[in-house]
């Protein structure tokens, strides 16, 4: 006889629909006007930043860049849900989260413009945040390590790791989830399921019905959130952050959204993706939805973020490149004697 020894379920959190109408009772945050304004401002900033970055890239003033068009609710909801003393472990599509946490916009531009100083972060508020992870999925383990250090020191903090749907196919992510469960680590894994990993749709990425259930296999809490509903993302990630900070262990939050743009400025999604699918995704726009819900006039916020970005772009364009010897400057804490002669070029 076979007996049922364990059963599992995955829930998806949705708070407002595409027209901005409540889908049920809302959490207290939904009436916090200051919070909602912050979320809206963050998403407007994300969109304006992306647009400006693509413009800079197309005019030869920035390197390859990956936008977050259509999925802005995820980085913004994540960053606003975090506490200042938590540590963000981002992938390469969370610029908005980095900026909200305190990374200077010109620093982000500098990094994407090919200058390591963009990861030096002058603002002490983000001194411990990890740099952008270009290698997909490795950062899940780094986040687990950050969390293990916090736990080791009995600190009530957590690490928040953001990754894409493609990353969940990697062993690193399984290993991170596994150790997070085994050690009850204070870490939150946010999976931005934007349905595409470059040209691979999520249905060909995995046979699992949800990406969230990969968390269950490692014994951590797991749920989905509507990734185009910033209130749902904020609520789900916020709950996970509080759980982690209070010793309740790790959570995987799968945010369901859609990558409206190409993978990056070097990609042309028209070669592999049905445009009708993209048009449908545009109707679920997270910014329009929050505006409909809140009734906030976005114009003054848009004007303010626009000015902020232009000022940062001007500072970015004025940055003088480092001298070539800078490539040795931080290889080790001091340049090893055997390497020193290479400084002379």
């Amino acid at each position: 006889m076979d007996e049922v020894v364990a059963t599992f379920e995955i829930r998806c959190r949705r708070l407002i629909d595409e027209a901005g109408r409540p889908l049920g009772p809302l959490p207290p945050t939904a009436t916090d006007q200051a919070l909602i304004t912050r979320l809206l401002e963050g998403m407007l900033l994300a969109r304006a930043f992306d647009r400006r970055c693509v413009n800079l890239q197309r005019t030869g003033q920035l390197g390859t860049f990956a936008t977050s068009l259509g999925q802005e609710a995820v980085p913004v909801g994540v960053a606003v849900a975090m506490h200042a003393d938590d540590v963000l472990v981002p992938s390469y599509r969370e610029g908005a989260a980095q900026i909200i946490r305190g990374v200077a916009i010109e620093e982000l531009l500098a990094y994407w413009g090919g200058d390591e100083r963009g990861h030096a972060y002058a603002n002490p508020a983000v001194a411990e945040d990890l740099p952008v992870a270009i290698t997909v999925g490795n950062q899940a383990l780094h986040a687990a390590g950050v969390a293990a250090a916090m736990q080791h020191r009995r600190q009530a903090r957590c690490a928040v790791c953001v990754m894409g749907d493609g990353a969940t196919s990697k062993g690193d992510v399984y290993e991170a989830i596994n150790v997070a469960g085994a050690w009850r680590l204070p870490v939150v894994f946010v999976v931005t399921n934007n349905r595409w990993a470059i040209s691979t749709p999520v249905a060909r990425q995995t046979g699992a019905e949800t990406l969230a259930q990969k968390g269950l296999a490692g014994g951590i809490a797991a749920l989905q959130a509507d990734g185009n509903d910033v209130l749902a993302v904020h609520d789900a990630v916020g709950e996970a952050v509080e759980r982690a900070r209070s010793g309740g262990g790790a959570t995987l939050v799968e945010c369901l959204t859609y990558r409206v743009n190409d993978h990056n400025t070097a990609d042309d999604a028209g070669r592999y993706r049905d445009p009708a699918e993209v048009e449908e995704a545009r109707r679920a726009d997270p910014i329009a939805r929050l505006i409909a819900f809140s009734g906030i006039d976005p114009a003054p916020l848009e004007a303010a973020v626009g000015e902020r970005i232009e000022a940062a772009v001007a500072r970015y364009l004025a940055i003088v490149p480092e001298p070539s010897a800078a490539m040795f400057g931080h290889l080790h804490h001091e340049i090893p004697e055997p390497t020193r002669w290479q400084l002379r070029g």
Binding site: V87, V89, E128, L130, N138, A140, L141, H142, A143, A144, G145, V146, A147, A148, A149, M150, H152, R153, A159, G171, D172, E175, A176, N178, V179, A182
Partner: peptide, 28 residues
Amino acid sequence: ADRVRDTPLAETMISGLAIGMATQGLRP
């Protein structure tokens, strides 16, 4: 056990975890 830690069986994990710990100032 906190300072001499048995880990799950996963070498990639051990190296990645050590990196995260090190960024926090530990010396794994």
